[in-house]
Design a protein around this nucleic acid. Structure first.
Lengths: 207, 207
DNA sequence: GTCTATAAATCGATAGAC
DNA sequence: GTCTATCGATTTATAGAC
């Protein structure tokens, strides 16, 4: 059955090409510039061919958001090897903000672009324990729980504290992205800004 | 010159009608649904008439963002009468998040929708001391400075701390908006979530 | 000042030939 | 599996009559 396998492989390859081209368009021209025709031109196929792989344009967009989120989670995976929970927590925050600053368009795509896709993907990932990388939020909450158990953190609800920590780093990152090129004095030094946010939140939770 | 004045008044009224209709469309159908034709239909004029008041669609959108930001600032104005700086700071945070939750579409329009308009408006407001409501960020920074002077806060850079505080409440608000209807357990109780964020940041900055 | 009419472009999606 | 051709609808913006 080598022929069938080759066909399947080729089909998957074209699907990949479509997504790669779509990602490129979103990252360079913005989400609203994504169109079937532009993708078709980029991969040098007719627009009709794309419909053999994706039923609608929205399905492509959704997949892009999904992959973007997976990328973000992947970037934070190394923290699992950090033994000290305080250091682990700080590193989660640092890596999170670092990703958002290195790939602002991807971050924007995940959290700021389209509410429909954002909430769908976030909902899927946060509710489905079998998602690749789904454990990110759980790790965050568990780390907080660990610190509470060690009496290093005050006895707060770990899940709620985890959400506050997430909101804190998301706030620094997304405010920066929203204000980017605004010509303000805001966040000239992101490094210092991030560190202060993390320090303030750690101190605020410390017993 | 009563006739000229009446004409001017009528022109301003139509301009207002255009903006009101545009705002309505954005708040109910989303930003991307805003079009000259829809506005024209809503105000019962031909599309061509709109171009006598606004050169492009972008100019209308920009004005909407501008007014949205002014609305947000207006909602926080009452904090100026609060004497105690700690209480003032808490109230700034509460009012900020409250506005974002009461008017999520307006908040989204200001900070999450279009980077071009967001950064332009934010830049204008934060750099121009003559803006109505421009003092919002200054008040935040001054309140932090006050608390540092009273040795109630640690000696941090007031402007940087103000930005962290802003990022904190923005994070809670915007994460909530992004995850809305995601069906997650996230932020089920926004009241508690906001209070924890504020409490953590206050404690984190306390001397 | 307001309209009609229209240019010129883009879009998603599909039918049907090959 | 891929194409051509096209439908049908959308958009911004303008020209020119009234």
């Amino acid at each position: 059955m080598g022929i069938a396998q080759r066909k399947e492989r080729q089909k998957a390859e074209l699907r990949d090409q479509i997504l790669t081209a779509a990602r490129e368009i979103v990252l360079t021209e913005g989400f609203e510039a994504l169109s079937m025709r532009k993708i078709a031109e980029a991969i040098e196929y007719s627009p009709a061919t794309i419909y053999l792989h994706f039923a609608t344009r929205d399905e492509i967009a959704l997949q892009l958001v999904r992959e973007g989120f997976a990328q973000l989670l992947l970037a934070m995976a190394p923290v699992q090897s950090i033994v000290d929970p305080t250091e682990r927590l700080m590193e989660i925050g640092r890596r999170y903000i670092h990703f958002a600053m290195e790939q602002p368009e991807t971050y924007r795509l995940i959290f700021m672009e389209n509410p429909k896709f954002s909430s769908e993907v976030i909902g899927q990932i946060l509710n489905n324990p079998s998602e690749p990388g789904e454990r990110a939020f759980a790790i965050l909450a568990e780390t907080v729980g660990e610190l509470i158990a060690q009496k290093r953190f005050r006895p707060v609800d770990p899940e709620q504290a985890a959400e506050v920590l997430w909101a804190g780093v998301h706030g620094v990152a997304s405010l920066r992205i929203a204000c980017h090129a605004a010509g303000t004095k805001l966040s000239e030094d992101m490094e210092k800004q991030s560190e202060l946010m993390l320090e303030v939140m750690m101190r605020g939770l410390t017993a």
